[in-house]
Design a protein around this nucleic acid. Sequence first.
DNA 1: AATTTTTATGCAAATAGTTGCATATAAAAC
DNA 2: GTTTTATATGCAACTATTTGCATAAAAATT
Lengths: 180, 180
Amino acid sequence: MSLPHAILTALLDEDLTGYALAKQFDVSLGFFWQASHQQIYRELKGLHSMGGVNVLEVPQHGKPDKRVYSLTNQGRQMLDSWITQSTRHRGAKDELFIKLFNVGSVPIEQVTEAVKQRQIEHVRRLELYRKIEARSYASPSTLPDRKKGVYLSLLAGIRQEQTAVTWCDDALNLLATVKP
Amino acid sequence: MSLPHAILTALLDEDLTGYALAKQFDVSLGFFWQASHQQIYRELKGLHSMGGVNVLEVPQHGKPDKRVYSLTNQGRQMLDSWITQSTRHRGAKDELFIKLFNVGSVPIEQVTEAVKQRQIEHVRRLELYRKIEARSYASPSTLPDRKKGVYLSLLAGIRQEQTAVTWCDDALNLLATVKP
DNA sequence: AATTTTTATGCAAATAGTTGCATATAAAAC
DNA sequence: GTTTTATATGCAACTATTTGCATAAAAATT
């Protein structure tokens, strides 16, 4: 139930079209809550009918009209009261661990391969996060308040990926001792 | 799309009723893929109609009849071919980070409180995992193959929680520097 | 003796999320 | 010159997940 709030959060800094929001979700905010453009368009409609956002229709020639959304005072209040509510932790759902539970009953190569693939993903994300850190968050202590939360999210991402990469190494070592 | 496979995995070791499966999902397997009993009953029906599981109806007096499910050869093959398929990584969805993106725009106390609450959860899970580790996985090197994957999952859980607890500390320190 | 928990199953409705399709133009790359 | 990428929106169908309800009895607790 947080997609609307994620959208409102993205609109804190700047007014955006659904398209631009979808792109924002592919980076930054989307590292912690991804959504497809279809979902975003649907939610924007919902938020508009609830008064959380305003729309400015910008006519364009040829292309469909642009609809630029901005946060309303009511939208701000929605965010505010949502943040007060208890954060519900969605138990992580990870297929990889189910696969690991099959070790000893299915051919080991497939599981090993899955861990290797996963490690590549973690390494990729870690590199991306580190790049963002170096570019925009090199000196955390001098950050303006507005950026501190974003930095902390990035820091969580970096540490999670680092932990995962190390675990993959250890997992591959132990899996190497499993008889086929 | 992995709930059926999680169920099949749980049936590798022992035959179980839907009820018992739901309880299994509250521990062990469920640390990485939780499901409600309603979901499980529905999936079991689906798996049965697809031939992945057998049912043994055990009549009981008073209570509804027990339906004990067991893995079929076809079920084993379903698991086997699923493990070969690429593991899809669900981008983590975490409300807490959305809340962090609001730092600087909403009262800071609420965000701080959310992080504190989260830390309590992580500590609780970490303690639970460590207890399981001490009880059943104290010497990983002597584990039978069948248990190695389960141990690796537990290890991932422990490290994830440890990383998260540490991050919460650092986050609380930085959030303490944010002006209200 | 009364209440709560555990065992055991399941339907129905609502919410959330994914996938496939559909349209239409401009700009950039090959 | 043709293909791909980017801009810009959205419906419809499907799949997945959650929440609320309903039943019913044994066992454990207060």
